[in-house]
Write a protein that binds this DNA or RNA. Structure first.
Length: 500
RNA sequence: GCCUCUUUAGCUCAGUUGGUUAGAGCGUCGGACUGUUAAUCCGCAGGUCCUUGGUUCGAGCCCAAGAAGAGGCGCCA
């Protein structure tokens, strides 16, 4: 038996092996489904999904949502061998690919050899050929990859990640690896996880009994990054167009279906760009990625689409989505995102029915209030019914690095709000004027002396520039139609949970 | 961190007003069948009713505290 497979090495795709009479190497099921069945002998390896009638094995190898039907003539195989063909078992099969006699599939493999690679005790294996709740699957995250739902999610997650790199590469961006361990604690994006190699039982102390981080590994206090933005800005002010795509850590005690303690974020940063071009970039990126998933993952999307339709049937009419998953994705590509200012949004909200009738938990009365998620949801899901880009927020509710507008009270910030997700992108044109930036940092008690490396970009050839952060898992949530962010990352980290 | 809800068999759930021995479907196991599509049919087994304490003649059910999970809110991406 041959293990492994041929790999693309020269940049040219492997020739399709559909016409070869005998294929000795393992062939992925996704490839088999493209072959014309003509009795060719093939070798398959995968995991058993079901074994029906002591004759039909549904085999899945993760290369595709679809199973391949294997047919065994039980009289030709040892009874004790067939007894080990249980749900979840890993098997290797050699047989002939033929047109299926049954109606559920186009082709099937008539087995000549069958080998158990790994047994799976059916009394203990938690996955059954039935629908499991997402909560239960979350409790066995190490095995949930084996389900149709999570197989589809993680194949799509890959496609999204790949499309993001593809988009930036095609548009002349350079991929920058911003540091994961940071010595800067002034990024201002939330609580941070400390990184230390000190002995926590008995740390070194300074003369005034404080913990002496000067003796720590890096000679100073360090943390896991909460954003690669500041580093990306440094790179953009030399390479013009850059992006980061890496893990990000927030030690916030957030318990919601939209937050993780460890998540992945995409942060493009562009020199010689203003807020409008920042919006154009974000909108183009999101549409490109969604189109790629529609093009490359039709089966997985269809499965998640139908799954959602089934789920919705159990809900009351008024809580159901107006559009199916695939329709939502197409709608998102075909329509321009609504672009309005914070000030316009406040006017819409102030005059809205829920506000007049006192339905909002936080009523909108005056300009300057931060928008609550109920307000964002109203704008996106009820008023505009499409993605909304909100811009030019009051400076007092936004970060220090955002460029101050001429009105003296707003900054060139923009958030993109998606239905069902809320904020998926947060960005801004950056303050490139040194004196204004320093003044704002002082007002917000950001220690200037620690940020000299950042301020240097404003001293030496500063220029207008802009960028944003895109929450990768939030994008995966939208594209897959899932509801809980813990279901779109393989091993979710959240307060009280770092299992696996 | 705050609020609400949930916790009964491996999984998904039902369990009446507090009353005898806590049920169903699916799965497992045993058997039958053999071109099935989460195969079908027959049968067996399977329970710390989340934990602790309380009320009561009697608690899966009522009360209190705690734990775990989910949803809403805040922080944000």
């Amino acid at each position: 038996m041959f293990y492994g497979s041929g790999y693309v090495q020269s940049g040219k795709p492997l020739p399709l092996r559909r016409n070869k009479a005998v294929i000795m190497q393992r062939i992925p099921i996704s490839d088999v489904l493209k072959m014309v069945p003509s009795g060719q002998q093939i070798t398959l390896m995968g995991w058993v999904r079901t074994f029906r009638s002591n004759r039909f094995i549904a085999l899945n190898d993760g290369s595709s949502l679809h199973n391949l039907q294997l047919v065994v003539d039980f009289e030709k195989f040892d009874e004790n061998l067939l007894k080990r063909v249980t749900v979840g078992a890993a098997i290797s099969v050699k047989g002939n690919l033929v047109e299926s006699l049954g109606s559920g599939q186009a082709q099937e493999v008539h087995c000549e050899q069958l080998e158990i690679l790994g047994d799976c005790d059916p009394g203990e294996y938690p996955l059954q050929p039935k629908k499991h709740s997402l909560e239960f699957l979350r409790s066995i995250a190490h095995l949930r990859f084996r389900t149709n739902t999570f197989g589809a999610i993680f194949r799509i997650r890959h496609q999204i990640a790949f499309a993001i790199h593809e988009f930036f590469h095609q548009n002349g961006f350079f991929y920058i690896h911003s540091p994961i361990i940071t010595g800067s604690d002034a990024e201002g994006a939330g609580e941070m996880f400390r990184v230390t190699s000190l002995n926590l039982e008995n740390p070194p102390r300074t003369e005034d009994a404080q913990i002496d981080y000067g003796k720590d590994f890096f000679g100073k206090s360090t943390h896991l990054t909460v954003s690669g933005q500041l580093e990306a800005e440094l790179a953009a002010l030399a390479l013009s167009k850059v992006y980061t795509f890496g893990p990000t850590f927030r030690a916030e005690n957030s318990n919601t279906p939209r937050h993780l303690a460890e998540f992945w974020m995409i942060e493009p940063e562009v020199a010689f760009a203003d807020l409008k071009s920042n919006m154009d970039l974000a909108e183009a990126l999101l549409k490109f990625v969604i189109q790629k998933v529609l093009d490359h993952c039709p089966d997985d999307l269809k499965f998640l689409n139908d799954r959602e339709v089934d789920e919705e049937k159990t809900k009351p009419q008024n809580e159901r989505s107006e559009m199916s998953l695939i329709d939502r994705l197409k709608f998102c590509i075909e329509n321009n995102f609504e672009r309005i200012s914070y000030t316009e949004a406040i006017e819409i909200l102030r005059n809205s029915n829920p506000n007049k009738k006192g339905k909002f938990q936080y009523p909108i009365d005056k300009w300057g209030a931060d928008l609550q998620s109920e307000h964002e949801r109203f704008l996106v899901e009820k008023h505009f019914k499409k993605p909304v880009i909100l811009s030019d927020y009051p400076k007092d509710i936004k970060a220090f690095y955002m460029r101050q507008n001429d009105d003296g009270k707003t900054v060139a910030a923009m958030d993109i709000l998606f239905p069902g997700i809320g904020e998926i992108v947060g960005g801004s044109q950056r303050e490139e004027r040194l004196s204004l930036l320093e003044k704002r940092m002082s007002e917000m008690h950001i220690p200037l002396e620690e940020m000299g490396w950042y301020l240097d970009t404003r001293k030496y050839g500063s220029c207008p520039h802009a960028g944003f952060g895109l929450g990768f898992e939030r994008l995966v949530l939208f594209v897959t139609g899932m509801n809980n962010i813990r279901d779109v990352i393989p091993f979710p980290r959240f307060p009280g949970n770092a299992e696996y």
